[in-house]
């Protein structure tokens, strides 16, 4: 099958999922009734809740998948994701601090408070990974991954500590949010997320060829004319800002950044010129689908979307690990 046909199929599938998703939920809304004109109650549910939610899920999925993809190319390791590098837990720490201090100092920030808090946390964790690795001289992949693991633990325990200090109300909010959920969606903030994710997409697309070369190895990339450190910096900043924004809105939704890039590479190969739009699109559609499942599988109850992705992601992670041990190399 040709690459263009594969891409066409992925786009059609993704569009179908995106368009169909808002019709399902606690009550199914039929396309026919949408065309005839919905009654005000259904119209509110459809246009003010389900459509924004599908958009949010799409943006979150696209952003997390893109970030995973660039981290994997940078570290030449399929297990490098916003989570394994500690970016998500940094962002989570930032957001839980916001919930903890929510009533006081940070409240003046209003709706963008959680965003700034998450970005601050994500930035903090990236800065720490950066400092640890550069202190060891050079950007060794092994050291960077290990630093990510350590920072992950560090921030996870800080989140637990914040939870411990919080009253039961805040603690519950933090816990629910940590599961990763799109249920308490703050619709006005969708525009911020859209801006960040689309800007991230453009930034990454602009360095597609450099990312290809980085995949071939840093020395090789430099000898082919890539300004390696600058590209690394762009990747780090872009991915951290995107992950921070997604986490601030939807909590740490795990494993998307692992599964989607991997699946796309299996289907489409390694050229990032093709991979970047594919990962963006498939990642978005995948999370819309997961969100749909999370809304209907135990209806009327709704499970946090992070639980769905983790249930899929855990086995996938193990499969990647076993496969990589068998073939002796990670990709």
């Amino acid at each position: 099958m040709g690459t263009s046909l594969k891409i066409a199929i992925l786009i059609v599938l993704g569009l179908v999922i995106f368009v169909v998703s808002p019709f399902f939920g606690l009550e199914t809304i039929s396309p026919a009734s949408l065309l005839k004109g919905l009654d005000p109650g259904d119209a509110d549910v459809f246009w003010k809740m389900r459509v924004p939610r599908a958009v949010a899920a799409f943006l979150a999925g696209a952003g997390l998948s893109l970030s995973g993809m660039v981290f994997q190319a940078l570290f030449r390791n399929p297990l490098a994701t916003p989570f394994t590098l500690g970016v998500s837990s940094g962002a989570s720490f930032g957001a839980s601090m916001y919930f903890f201090l929510g009533g006081s100092a940070l409240a003046s920030l209003g709706g963008v408070g959680p965003l700034f808090a998450s970005l601050f946390g994500a930035g903090l964790s990236v800065a720490m990974v950066w400092l640890i690795t550069s202190a060891k001289g050079g950007f060794s992949t092994v050291i960077m991954l290990l630093a990510g693991v350590v920072i992950n633990f560090f921030f996870s325990s800080l989140v637990l500590f914040v939870q411990y200090l919080s009253d039961s109300n805040d603690s519950l909010r933090i816990m629910h949010w940590l599961m990763g959920s799109l249920s308490g969606l703050d619709t006005p903030r969708l525009a911020d997320l859209a801006f960040v994710v689309l800007a991230g997409f453009v930034a990454i697309r602009l360095i597609a060829q450099e990312i290809d070369l980085l995949t071939a190895g840093e020395e090789l990339a430099a000898s082919r004319g890539v300004k390696v450190n600058r590209v690394k910096l762009i990747i780090f900043i872009t991915a951290s800002v995107v992950v921070g924004s997604v986490v601030s809105l939807a909590g740490p939704i795990g494993f998307v950044g692992l599964m989607v890039p991997h699946a796309c590479r299996l289907i489409l190969g390694w050229s990032h010129r093709i991979l970047i739009p594919a990962v963006f699109f498939v990642g978005g559609a995948f999370l819309v689908l997961c969100d749909l499942v999370s809304r209907i599988i135990l209806a009327p109850a709704e499970i946090p979307i992070g639980i769905i992705t983790s249930m899929l992601g855990g086995p996938f992670f193990l499969w990647t690990l076993f496969k990589s041990q068998k073939t002796g190399d990670l990709f």
């Binding site: 995949t215 020395e219 390694w270």
Partner: peptide, 10 residues
């Protein structure tokens, strides 16, 4: 580069 290093997926 020296042989025996990272094999790019290309």
């Amino acid at each position: 580069p020296q042989a025996g290093g990272w094999i790019p997926p290309f």
